[in-house]
Write a protein that binds this DNA or RNA. Structure first.
Lengths: 131, 131
DNA sequence: GTAATAGTGAAGCATCCGCTTGACTATTCG
DNA sequence: CGAATAGTCAAGCGGATGCTTCACTATTAC
């Protein structure tokens, strides 16, 4: 349970790649061999093996070799780790925004907008206000 | 709403970096300037600006410049995007595993373990069974 | 036994990432 | 005014990432 930062690192890192996400999607339907995972993915089998290794290192996937085929399966606990991290921050933000919303009720013509403090006295030249 | 793949890419990509996650954590308490975000993060201000740019490109953060300071705030919608993706896959997996569990009830001595199909007849030399 | 299948390991390569430094601009403080 | 603050821009650098190919092993099918 220690070292959650590095864990989150590896999980989000693993989820970054679209190919790996598509493997996760495939695996959420049920276990699959490496070749099955490779099939829809225009890249070499070796590349897919490497992706599987990343997924395993992150804990998102477990695998087991039987005969000559390696069967991969999802470990939902790892998904939960990432999901909780996001969820906790999101609820925090939303609660804060809700409180702010009911406190301000309505103030300016902007209904749902910027939660800043001061009335922004702007400078004359304003090369890029929002991004 | 199109191009969700690229969106997810950018969001997970943004969440990969521990520095950026710590900025998200700070921002979930409320808006902050770039310098405030930089304070606890032993790295140059320029580096932090670059991280903020990544966060903005992902949609996780919005910012607005007033005077000489840029104020950053979280956009919870982007958090929801990532959270839903994970959540959907996780529930899928868990439901499948539940069905499987009640179907098998108990079969072998392993209570909560491998959801494979065949009784794995193993080969004699088995250099690395699981990873 | 021979051949096809499934995967592994290692090297190499182009590109991307995170960061630094240095020069510069715009704003605010005294 | 001049100095400090807050941020921006651009170049550059070392290390990680995402592939590829080639050689090789173990298993299964004929």
């Amino acid at each position: 349970m220690l070292n959650q930062v590095a864990d989150l690192d590896r999980v989000f890192q693993a989820l970054t790649d679209p190919g790996r996400r598509s493997m996760i999607e495939r695996l959420s339907q049920g276990p699959a061999s490496v070749s099955e995972l490779a099939r829809p993915l225009s890249m070499s089998l070796a590349a897919v093996v490497q992706h599987v290794q990343v997924l395993e290192a992150s804990g998102l996937v477990r695998s087991q070799k039987t005969g000559r085929t390696r069967t991969c399966a999802i470990n939902p606990a790892a998904l939960r780790t990432a999901e909780s991290w996001i969820s906790e921050r999101r609820t925090l933000v939303e609660r804060r925004l809700d409180r702010l919303g009911e406190y301000l009720a309505e103030t300016a013509g902007v209904p749902d907008a910027w939660p800043a403090g001061q009335p922004p006295r702007r400078s004359s030249s304003d090369p890029e206000e929002n991004r």
